[in-house]
Amino acid sequence: MCHYCEMWGDGTIWYLNPRNYARHMYTLPKEAKPGATKAVGEADPAGYINLERAMVDALERGPEEYEKAMKFARDMVDMTQGSVGGWMGQVVPLRDAERMAEISNPLGLIACICRKAMLGIEERCPENMTCMGLGVGMLKWERWPERYKGGVHWLTIEETKQWLRDLDTKGFVHSLMMFGPRFIGGICNCDYPACDALTMRLDHGFNMLKGHHVAMVDYDLCNGCGICVQRCQFGALKMNVTLDKANIDQMRCFGCGLCETACPRKAISLKERIKIPSLQEVW
């Protein structure tokens, strides 16, 4: 069972509950320690990069040091983002991302800060406008123009859905971002290793939860065209050469649904994670 759905779901999937987009959720963390200089949700790539560097440095020093660094990193993410256990995001499939766009308001696109830091892509590049902001957090661009450099591209619901579909066609993984406890403030569209959040999850195991779905292949429909294989960012989807079919490792699947949207024969479908006994605790 998803703990966020238990706490914040009110009977539905937690990120489809409109209460989690409400203005009053967007609050400053009360228990912020004296060392913290940034308010909640104020994007600080320097902090993230230094956390990641500290964890990589700890790999050199041994397992105890690494665990210590990981605990520190989780606490830091909790403190600055108001998350729980270092999980501040979750992978969502395209159809859920589209439903999230219907719930939240206002909607806008800004430049991706991870890709800027990792690849040096400047804010004014149109292909870098992939960071989708949901809700009132987008209105603080005036206070932090550095984060919103390149401008905010405001969108209607239909335009947002079209952007999401276009980004999905390109092959970006959608994931929601929490800014403060139970305030969903954005949809990140990114890939490994350009995305800091996905990189943290796949290399160090925190920051991004797996989605509420897992992909399954229908072997009767799959003809082994291999279109889906190149779209998996998580190493879950491989070509089964013996059978000439796509093969998904469900333990590795994050449920992003990129393979589902790419399949020309509708052979891949998304199943609910909580209905599969061995996977319902794999997040």
Binding site: M7, P63, W87, L202, G205, F206, E281
Partner: peptide, 23 residues
């Protein structure tokens, strides 16, 4: 939210027995 009451999943993709590694 009372954070002490919340169970959170754990994931460690790094193999801890392999540490420390040279880089």
């Amino acid at each position: 939210v009372d954070k002490s009451k919340i169970k959170v999943p754990k994931a460690t993709p790094q193999d801890l027995t392999r540490l420390p590694i040279k880089m």
